[in-house]
Amino acid sequence: MAGEGGRRPEVEGEARDVGPETPGRPATLFLPGALQPWAGGRSSLSLEGATVGEMLDGLALSVPQLEWRLRDEQGMVRRHVQIFVGDTNIRDAAGLQTPVPEGGCVYIIPAVAGG
């Protein structure tokens, strides 16, 4: 699943705290191993947001060093980043406007790519 991009550079911040979780815990964002070092080693984060885009907006505030791995500066999801709400790829739904149900599960999955 991780493909060739499934490793991350050795950078400072391996053990940094990811900041307080969003109260309310309406949905869970699951991270692949490659992204976990940017989240303080955690495999999931609880985030508020009625849509995937709103969840990532919250991520940009609470864990900025992680958010810009997923979206570029114009807010577009990077080409080889796949985001699923449950078993639905948001590219097959409403993109960043895809609704996230309360208590839902959102998965970040790196596409198989590279050489």
Binding site: G3, R8, V11, E12, A34, R69, D72, V81, G114
Partner: peptide, 18 residues
């Protein structure tokens, strides 16, 4: 990174950490 985008790293200890 093909997955996680472009960046610029720096090291102030001659490459021990980035």
């Amino acid at each position: 990174s093909e997955h996680w985008g472009p960046s610029l790293h720096h090291s102030d200890d001659l490459g021990a950490t980035w």
